[in-house]
């Protein structure tokens, strides 16, 4: 059975990531954020999602990637359903939804290191690029502040 899974793709720095489509509730443009003083540095702030208050996490900081270029277009929100409720993940840009053939699934590449390696469930080889599958549940568990 050559089953395939659909992933919602997005980019962070120069990398392409994917989240299972059925986890994704919606994708939104940048919106008003309310900063939360003294919160974990990964917490970017709070957004109003149709009357519901949702915590937004900066995936760049979570994955310990270099900070976003201030001149770059504002980040996008991917609202995902997780065990800790609805959360918004801030990413650089949203890509297509892709069908990934389960047969091409591989372990995370050796070249990845550090936090990113822990939070990547595996990879798919798409034509010409590598799709890194985000382990969403682990990604939204914040490390305790040092």
């Amino acid at each position: 059975m050559a089953a395939s899974i659909q992933y919602c793709t997005f980019s962070l720095a120069h990398l392409t990531f994917g989240i299972e489509v059925d986890r994704v509730q919606e994708v939104m443009r940048s919106r008003d954020l309310t900063e939360v003083p003294l919160a974990n540095e990964v917490v970017e702030g709070l957004i109003n999602l149709r009357g519901q208050i949702v915590t937004a996490l900066d995936l760049r900081r979570r994955l310990e990637l270099p900070p976003r270029d201030p001149a770059a277009p504002p980040p996008m929100h991917i609202v995902v359903r997780t065990n800790s409720g609805e959360l918004s993940l801030l990413v650089d840009a949203i890509g297509d939804v892709v069908d990934a053939d389960e047969a091409t699934f591989e372990e995370p590449p050796e070249t990845l290191d550090g936090v990113a390696r822990e939070l990547i469930a595996g990879t798919y080889k798409l034509d010409g690029r590598l799709l890194l599958v985000l382990d969403t549940e682990r990604a939204v568990q914040l490390p305790s502040p040092v």
Partner: peptide, 10 residues
């Protein structure tokens, strides 16, 4: 409205 679990420490 309650705060999410990520903000408990604040």
């Amino acid at each position: 409205k309650p705060l999410g679990s990520h903000l408990k420490e604040a």
